[in-house]
Design a protein around this nucleic acid. Structure first.
Lengths: 353, 353
DNA sequence: GCAGTTTATCGAAGCGCTTCGATAATTTCG
DNA sequence: CGAAATTATCGAAGCGCTTCGATAAACTGC
């Protein structure tokens, strides 16, 4: 196996010094036209290409960016972060970066939670997707490595973030329902401590406020501990048992909860959308296959990944301190779980049975 | 920003030479218990960790493995290679490798098709998923870089391969149909030149042969140029118009074709599985949502990725020449598109109308 | 008790590249 | 026309690590 040529071979063959070759490769300093051409010719002849690790060592950088997420994401059925990752991967390729992927435990453990690529100084910047421990973020931050957070917002706004426009999402949902003639619109949330969910709640609340509608407490459910299907199911039951009349439409914090809610409604004989309209959020695969298909809010995950990489490379170039908060637009997907508010008095009777 | 400690700092502080520290880190050569402990203590105190690029340069390796696929895969809706990639990613993590992903054009172009990580000598081995140009494979091979092919088999068996057991898949399908009492079993294939499809065809043919059933030409369709849904649709039409009676069951080369076939049958008033049973292959997402849900053959894609990485790391360690051909097992997923062969004479009448 | 091993440590060279001066040749222009 | 600035090239040092001898001390065993 014959060795690949090094910069030395190029220099020898072109009868110039190592440094000159380096200058040509990097388009730096002063090199006369003639020697530049000579060197370039030799490079072509030899099929030379600089070796990554040598260059990295000399430049004290890596050409990689790290992608961190908690290890439960990939095992989830919904490929949310997978799509973000792919978007990032493609954008990174454009900027001549490679992405090193790693997963970490949800809870921080200073021994094991530090991704290897950080210890090895093998990344120039880091993408963090979803809710990782703030200790880890702080640790990376303390190493002075640029960070971009995706779909997760920490309180201090020290790092750039790429979020979906949660607020705008529920706003769209409310607008859609208002157009359909609904006035009594509920919100089925889970854990309001989660920033995204809270934003969705706010978008809902503000929109109704602006429409001059006074929200009744009984329209809102936010007692469930999480935002999974089961929580939606439970929340739906709570709705039915609170002694108050149901709103004519419900916006769920996400599709999973909406689907759980839908299931309970179906069991309880409440028809969606005839008796009540229902909107989800996230546009997960299943929201399309459920009966009836869910009206929901979609965000382009691929674009989130792309944008994150673009932001990160800019931070790498411009140095830290460059902070950017980007909201990726969302769109309303109208399917069959929402319908006109025909006559809500009939409905009240229906679900009081 | 204070510099991270280097091996030099460790040496100084531990009052030993650079080389001794290196020996300790790598567990090599002779080091007395006492100095070993001393060095290890200092390493801990300083929070030292060797830097990747320096080590790579010295060792002339990279600690990365490349993952190549053609650029159309990720744009396809079916996340087939995505799952393989994730399997590979996780397994790589266990072996302390990072995966560098890249896509290449289907047709080889010596200028642009060479992945950057190859030019930069930035990978110790390469995973190739799907049908990439043989020129590229030959090129990589000529650089003496270990290769493992996934879901693609080139003629010369110079490289390790990880394939799904296509042959076994259609064998399972035939067994299933035989148990249901079918004797007239057709095969709806596309491009038989594709090795995977051909293996599926062989599994079908051999199984019927072994069962003592003589296959009629009219049961087999293999004239379509590709294996997409439209090809299945067209093939189904050809089946109906060939003047012969239909078999009582059909095995399609893949789910896409099966779904196309199903669509045409539905349009033609032929009921699946009442009039004819139908089996797909691949277990794509849609095969589950179609009416009726498709009986099909599933393979664990994640496992394919894992196995490929395991094979590759072994080749990297043991040197080339270590060649392994692995077939990942498949399983039959019985859903609603197959049923007992009740009375096929009635059926014949049905579809002759 | 001494030649031959084994164990322990270290200095120096080397991996392939970048970059900082130093030197020299060429150009500018007051 | 000569001092200063610009252009061109190169040698050497350095990036942080591994590894090959060299050297020396500590054991073998006869």
């Amino acid at each position: 196996m014959k060795q690949r040529p090094t910069i030395k071979d190029v220099a020898k063959r072109a009868k110039v010094s190592l440094s000159t070759v380096s200058l040509v490769i990097n388009n730096k300093g002063y090199v006369s036209q003639s020697t530049r051409e000579k060197v370039e010719r030799v490079i072509r002849e030899l099929g030379y290409h600089p070796t990554r690790s040598a260059r990295d060592l000399a430049l004290r950088k890596s050409g990689n960016i790290g992608f961190i997420l908690t290890n439960d994401h990939f095992t989830q059925s919904e490929p949310f972060y997978t799509k973000i990752f792919l978007g990032a991967e493609f954008e990174a390729q454009k900027h001549d970066y490679y992405i090193l992927l790693t997963t970490v435990e949800k809870k921080f453990d200073s021994l094991n939670s530090i991704p290897r690529f950080l210890k090895e100084q093998n990344v120039d910047g880091v993408l963090i997707a979803g809710q990782v421990s703030i200790e880890l973020i702080a640790y990376i931050s303390s190493m002075n490595i640029p960070i971009v957070l995706i779909d997760y917002d920490v309180e201090n706004h020290k790092h750039s973030t790429v979020l979906m426009n949660n607020y705008r999402g529920t706003q769209l949902a409310v607008e859609h329902l208002l157009e359909l003639g609904h006035k009594e619109i509920g919100f089925l949330g889970g854990d309001l401590d989660h920033p995204s969910i809270y934003q969705r709640y706010l978008g809902y609340k503000d929109s109704l406020d602006n429409a001059g509608i006074i929200i009744k407490d009984s329209w809102i459910s936010a007692k469930e501990p999480d935002t999974k299907q089961q929580d939606g199911y439970n929340a739906a039951r709570a709705f039915l048992n609170n002694g108050e009349s149901l709103p004519t439409a419900i916006i769920a914090a996400n599709d999973a909860m909406a689907i759980g809610c839908l299931r309970h409604f179906t069991e309880a004989g409440i028809k969606v959308p005839d008796d009540i309209s229902l909107i989800g959020f996230d546009n997960i695969e299943r929201s399309y296959h459920v009966k009836p298909p869910l009206t929901t809010i979609d965000v382009n995950k691929f674009e989130m990944g792309e944008t994150a990489v673009r932001t990160l490379t800019e931070t790498i170039i411009n140095g830290n301190g460059y902070v950017n908060h980007i909201k990726i637009p969302v769109t309303l997907i109208v399917r069959e779980s929402t319908d006109k508010n025909v006559d809500h008095h009939i409905k009240k009777r229906t679900h009081h049975k």
